[in-house]
Design a protein around this nucleic acid. Structure first.
Length: 727
DNA sequence: ATGCCTGCAGCG
DNA sequence: GCTGCAGGCATG
């Protein structure tokens, strides 16, 4: 009789599986959680195959120590997707598989679910006699006397010591305890009625619905306010009507109670699972299991939700598909949008990507016909028109603390009209730093190769990359000169300036500092909506998704820095960001105005922006990308190395480069220090590989990386980044 | 990743 | 010769 051997995935940084004796398992146990002995401890593993062969001496195999749960936790379909990710992103299969599980399922033990308990009087309990003086107990008994099932929460009011009383009664056999798994959505909502779609929206819904049951990616290209969400809701409705589950992926910042509320209100009778990294382990598990059991029919989640088992999955929707938060930047480095496409392909279902400013890769796919493009050109609220965009020439306007007279006048005008203004700062490459006018010294992070940012409020210099902080010095540490002052415009300095200029205006600054407290951002949103704020100052956070009806002016302080960026995606991102922030102006009854301060008023980016012309600018950028051989006309991968000294990282990469086999269709560049060389006391370098052919690149990487794994890398960490978002 | 084994510097 | 830490290596 041949021994039964299971191949088990373990969360280890080695690209292979481990075999164990598993006499009780069969092929039906693939995807199951098991505990296995590994070295001197127990690890959690997932069974990936059950057979009779092993590449390891069978006599030295250890048996699985425990088979967990009553059924496999990952279905074959998800395992296949994970296998693809492991191959494509060249990440160890075990680590890839385990990363798809919520943390609560990664522990080598059975899981426990949160339950709500309810109590009921038993037959003998009905006849119980409670001492007359035990008031608390009598009150509790009175509540239970009707013989019905009472949730623990409703009994709490009867007696302060209800818990111990019930426990005692349970021992006496007077009451019985019923535990039920808590439902996901227990808050009542007011149902919302679906509005009538405009012809463009209706046609989009119709086309996507027609693709039910077949793989077809769609790009829903629609300006802010054109009603993409309504299209999503109608598609969800249609998919649910046919008994399907829908996966809706949204950027990190968009997964708010507000969005969840929209879905709950439209589908009040449907269980909705939400999945994002901010949830606690217990809730995550609860929602994940509800989705995986097919009970939760709608799954609203961030990138990590792309791997959730969904037995009835019928449609995938990705909102704001160009958003950078769909890229996982550590561990398994994947692009959730691309993984979702593969998932839709494997499952043969339609997938819809929605955006006002699609990623150029996506746009290119729509141009070549791989994706079907659907456009929404009208703003759904017919009275609202697109904001007018005005460029302020910084070469002719003299600025005070970054604010031009033109912008200043525009703000005053809004104040007079009792409307709101938003001053937007493009934080990338724009923050106040400390400079000595005498010797040129500037405050740098001792651990990273970046300048420290001045935070006047708490008199600190802070590193925005590693979090280092120190007090602002009174004099230059190099030459002793006391004339050291912040340069550039930060949100705090801007806030002070605006407050000086408009003393009666109510100014609110919104950035990571001011929204750090858990619910302060929600509170601020309410304040803004209630009209308790006149001028808003903000960064990225404000650009996204929120609709403030009384906001009619958006001022962009300095956008130009992205135009000098060495990153070839910087202008794509700037355009998309400015389009988004422009969408903040005038969404309700008032027409909005956007003022952009720039030194390059003729730059094609700003010209296109003025015309709200994504299509034209995408064409320009794609032409540039084609002639410069950048993505999407080339496929890239980056080997990154981190060490104490950049030389060691560079040496490792040089050795790796030497290991590569020659291939005429592959370009291997020279190792180079990363743009931000030093970060949190590690120095980083990278090696870029590219090829016009994705398959060729994949074939090359597979062979190359297997050799890199064999290289000795002491005190050095390395990883491969396929289709990097940033180099 | 983590823990164990081996090898050589430092000590007496 | 013994202890201690670094680097190499196996973990099934």
């Amino acid at each position: 009789m041949l021994p039964v051997i299971a191949q088990v995935a373990l969360d280890l940084p080695v690209p292979r599986l481990f075999d164990y004796l598993a006499p009780t398992l069969t092929a039906a146990d693939v995807g199951r959680r098991v505990c296995v002995p590994f070295g001197r401890k127990e690890l959690l593993g997932i069974v990936l195959a059950v057979g009779h062969k092993s590449d390891h001496p069978v006599a030295r195999l250890k048996p699985i120590s425990q088979v967990l749960d009553d059924a496999p936790i990952l279905p074959a379909e998800v395992l296949k997707l994970l296998q693809f990710c492991s191959d494509y992103y060249h990440h160890p299969l075990g680590a890839t598989v385990l990363s798809a599980l919520p943390t609560a399922l990664r522990k080598p033990q059975p899981y426990t679910l949160k339950t709500t308990s309810a109590w009921q009087l038993t037959e003998s309990g009905q006849r119980a006699e409670i001492p007359a003086r035990a008031h608390g107990q009598r009150a509790l008994f009175t509540l239970l006397a009707d013989g019905a099932v009472h949730p623990a929460a409703s009994l709490a009011a009867a007696s302060a010591s209800y818990r111990s009383t019930l426990k005692h009664w349970l021992e006496l056999g007077w009451v019985s305890l019923l535990s039920t798994i808590a439902p996901l959505n227990n808050n009542a909502v007011v149902a919302d009625i679906a509005p009538v779609l405009n012809p463009e929206q209706a046609s989009a819904v119709e086309k996507i619905s027609a693709a039910t049951g077949q793989f077809q990616p769609f790009l829903l290209h629609g300006v802010t306010g054109s009603g993409k969400t309504e299209v999503y809701l109608h598609l969800v409705q249609a998919a649910l009507a046919q008994g399907g589950q829908v996966l809706v992926l949204v950027p990190e910042i968009n997964l708010t109670p507000q969005l969840t509320g929209v879905f709950r209100a439209r589908f009040p009778d449907v269980e909705i699972a939400t999945l994002n990294s901010g949830m606690n382990d217990g809730d995550r598990l609860q929602h994940w299991l509800a989705a995986s059991a097919g009970r939760a029919r709608i799954v609203l989640g961030t990138r990590l939700a792309v791997f959730t088992p969904l037995p009835q999955l019928a449609l995938i929707i990705i909102d704001e598909e160009h958003d950078s938060s769909f890229y996982q930047q550590d561990g398994l480095r994947y692009a959730a949008r691309d993984v979702a496409i593969i998932r839709a392909q494997q499952r043969n279902i339609p997938i819809m990507l929605g955006s006002a400013t699609p990623a150029l890769e996506t746009w290119h796919n729509a141009q070549t016909g791989r994706y079907q493009r659907l456009s929404l050109t009208q703003r759904a609220i017919s009275a609202a028109t697109l904001p007018s965009i005005r460029l302020v020439d910084l070469r002719t306007q003299k600025c005070d603390a970054g604010i031009s007279p033109a912008l200043s006048a525009a703000i005053q005008q809004r104040l007079d009209l009792q409307q709101q203004s938003l001053i937007f700062i493009n934080r990338r490459g724009y923050a106040p730093t400390l400079v000595c006018r005498a010797c040129g010294w500037n405050a740098g992070c001792p651990r990273c190769s970046v300048r420290l940012v001045v935070h006047l409020r708490d008199k600190q210099l802070r590193c925005h990359h590693c979090g280092y902080a120190q007090r602002v010095p009174h004099a230059c540490p190099d030459c002793g000169n006391v004339d050291i002052s912040p340069t550039g415009v930060g949100t705090q300095r801007l806030e002070e300036k605006l407050q000086q200029q408009f003393p009666t205006a109510r100014v609110l600054r919104i950035d990571r500092d001011s929204t750090r407290r858990k619910d302060s951002w929600a509170t601020m949103q309410q304040q803004i909506r209630a009209g308790e704020v006149d001028i808003l100052i903000g960064t990225q956070l404000l650009a996204k998704g929120h609709d403030f009806p009384n906001l009619t002016l958006v001022g962009v302080i300095d956008a130009d820095s992205a135009l000098y960026s060495p990153d070839f995606r910087a202008s794509e991102r700037l355009f998309s960001q400015l389009m988004q922030v422009s969408g903040r102006a005038g969404r309700a009854q008032h027409t909005g105005e956007v003022l952009i301060q720039t030194e390059f008023i003729d730059h094609p980016l700003y010209r296109a922006l003025q015309k709200h012309d994504y299509i034209g600018y995408a064409k320009t950028l794609l032409n540039e990308r084609r002639s410069a051989s950048f993505p999407p006309y080339i496929h890239q991968a980056v080997l990154r190395a981190e060490a104490e000294y950049v030389q060691d990282a560079l040496a490792f990469l040089s050795e790796a480069k030497a290991q590569a086999s020659d291939n005429e269709h592959i370009s291997l560049f020279d190792p180079t220090p990363a743009a931000l060389t030093r970060k949190a006391n590690v120095e980083r370098a990278l090696l870029l590989v590219q090829s016009p052919n994705r398959r060729v690149l994949q074939g090359f990487l597979q062979e190359w990386i297997s050799r890199v794994y064999k290289m000795k890398a002491n005190k050095l960490r390395w990883h491969l980044d396929v289709d990097p978002w940033e180099i």
